[in-house]
């Protein structure tokens, strides 16, 4: 828990910096485990109930570990009008999981976001740091096969 204490100290334990503190902790641990949250509540003098309320209020906080590859589909209006729901469906079908969930092999987490602000590229899928624009069903298949291939290559 030293990391947690360090991060809290970085913000001087300031109550109003709670969200930034949680963001930094999540960046460190990849998600927000229960023990970590309990520690934060204790160190910052917050009721655990209130902390849970805050953490579950914001979408960017994850209470479950994330898969290795994060695939985000933009569901903004411009992307919607250009066919994003079908791209999402194809991903759900191919990954056999639903939006917000992680595949059982912990390889992929599929999420949606309500507009990344890159509407000229719509429909967009973000894989890690890379933006992939003008997605179609065919391109989804190509993208997943690329990732799977690189995984196979890495494990060999």
């Amino acid at each position: 828990m030293e990391k947690v204490d360090e991060i809290i100290a970085r913000y001087n334990g300031d109550r109003s910096a709670l969200i930034s503190i949680l963001q930094d902790i999540q960046a460190e641990y990849n998600w927000l485990p229960r023990e970590v949250l309990t520690e934060v509540a204790k160190k910052m003098g917050l009721s655990l109930t209130e902390l849970c309320g805050t953490v579950t209020f914001y979408r960017s906080f994850r209470l479950k570990p994330r898969g290795k590859h994060l695939i985000t589909v933009c569901m903004g209006t411009a992307c919607h009008v250009r066919g994003a729901p079908r791209v999402l469906e194809e991903l759900e079908k191919k990954l056999k999981t639903s939006a917000g969930a992680t595949t059982p092999d912990r390889l992929f987490t599929l999420e949606t976001v309500r507009c990344l602000g890159a509407c000229a590229l719509g429909p967009i899928v973000v894989l890690g740091d890379e933006y992939h624009g003008q997605m179609t069903k065919a391109k989804v298949d190509a993208l997943l096969s690329e990732v799977r291939q690189s995984e196979r290559g890495a494990s060999q």
């Binding site: 229960r34 655990l48 109930t49 209130e50 902390l51 849970c52 309320g53 579950t56 209020f57």
Partner: peptide, 24 residues
């Protein structure tokens, strides 16, 4: 302060932290 709101919108509900028995 044993129970509180969690979630947002349609997912909002009232429960104890982590849906577990609360010490408080």
């Amino acid at each position: 302060r044993a129970i509180g709101f969690v979630g947002r919108g349609q997912e909002r509900r009232i429960t104890t932290p982590f849906d577990m028995k609360s010490e408080a």
